[in-house]
Computed example of a mutant assay.
Amino acid sequence: MAFSPSLAFAYPWLGLLWPLPALVYWLAPPYRSHRPAVRVPFFTALRRLSGAAPSEGASVSPRGLWRSLALFICWTLALLALTRPQWTLPPVHHEKPARDLLLLVDLSGSMDTQDFTNAAGEKVTRLAAVKQVLDDFLARRQGDRVGVVVFGDAAFTLIPFTADLKLARQMLGEMQVGMAGPKTAFGDAIGLGVNLFAASKAPAKTMIALTDGNDTASSVPPAEAAKIAKDRRVVIHAVAVGDPAAAGEEKLDEESLKEVAATTGGGYYRALDRDELAGIYRRLDAIEARKIETVSFQPRLELYWAPLAALALLSMAAQALRLVRRPRLRTAEAAR
């Protein structure tokens, strides 16, 4: 349906004051300007000869038609400006992100293992493959706010929530293995992510956690952190890239990751190569489809300045005309 711009008034009820000057003119007594009389020594003789009884009085200056009309138009323009006329423009629809997406990226020493291949078929580290896949994933997240938490011996906020996906992709490309320590503090990373979501007003809150080892350095177990995330309505998807058959620090604790995902209503995924990892993020892209909240507002163009400008011009023109006519009237009276 086509929208037609229209004229509206913010305070139309002020139009009820329009006849107020007429009511004042009819009901209020006229303004009287008192003038001192000329004192003459023969006033008593004049009163006796004329037979008139003197009394105190006042002279009422008559107002001409054009002057009355100018005042009435000025009142109308002033009242029109007070009603705030507005020109209603077509509605504007603004889309804003309705989701905050937080990536938890494991930077422990085992992420330096070269058991993945890149798009060219070359052997690369797990982190290199992860960065390539995450870059493609973020390129399709237009409309979401994205944040990144990295974890090793401890968890750190690499990127607070931002809608600048170009900056987020650049910062992800600069991640290095071991920059957060050699161990794996997965539970602490979830806790830090929950704290970051505390200030979020987005209706949907999602974490995507990527790790290749078991938790060995957290002060809060991942299962306990997941329960807190569930209470805050945060969904966690767990993506595992480690080898379940490995031992020690590099051993993948699949049961813990599955429990974290199940507790929060997310999914658990395991990738043994780059193609599987890319497929996982394609599925996540479909599951966590971009959510947009549409906000509409009606722009209005204020027009109160137009009657005010007309009022100023009219009052100045009327005053100028009065000043021009005054010497002429005095000349005419002197000629009489």
Rank of each mutant, 00 (worst) to 15 (best):
A262V: 06
A119R: 15
R270F: 03
A8Q: 04
A278T: 00
G187E: 14
S68G: 12
H34I: 04
A262E: 14
R169Y: 01
E224C: 01
A53I: 13
G173Q: 05
R35Y: 05
D164H: 09
K201T: 14
D275G: 03
A53W: 12
I73R: 07
A185S: 13
F3A: 02
L89F: 03
L82D: 00
S218C: 02
K230P: 03
V194G: 12
A246L: 05
S61D: 12
V241S: 06
E255C: 01
G143Y: 01
A317Q: 02
Y281Q: 07
A334S: 07
L311Y: 07
L210G: 00
D100L: 09
G178L: 10
S55Q: 10
L311V: 03
S218H: 04
T211N: 13
P62K: 08
A189H: 13
V60A: 11
W26P: 13
G147V: 06
K166P: 04
L167V: 13
T211R: 07
L69T: 08
G242L: 10
W75Y: 13
A306F: 15
S110T: 09
T184M: 08
Y31V: 15
G242S: 02
V60K: 10
S108N: 06
G191S: 14
P90M: 05
R47M: 06
L284T: 08
G152T: 05
K201N: 12
P90L: 00
F42D: 14
E293A: 07
I159A: 12
S61G: 11
L158K: 06
G267M: 08
L23I: 11
I159C: 15
S256E: 01
G143C: 10
E249V: 06
G143K: 09
A271V: 03
W18L: 15
R63I: 14
A98S: 14
G279M: 06
F297M: 13
V239N: 03
L103E: 04
V234H: 07
L323Y: 00
E224V: 10
A217P: 03
D215W: 03
R274A: 13
N214Y: 03
A154Q: 15
Q132P: 01
I280V: 15
R325P: 00
Q114H: 07
A22S: 06
R282Q: 14
A310W: 04
E293D: 13
A278K: 14
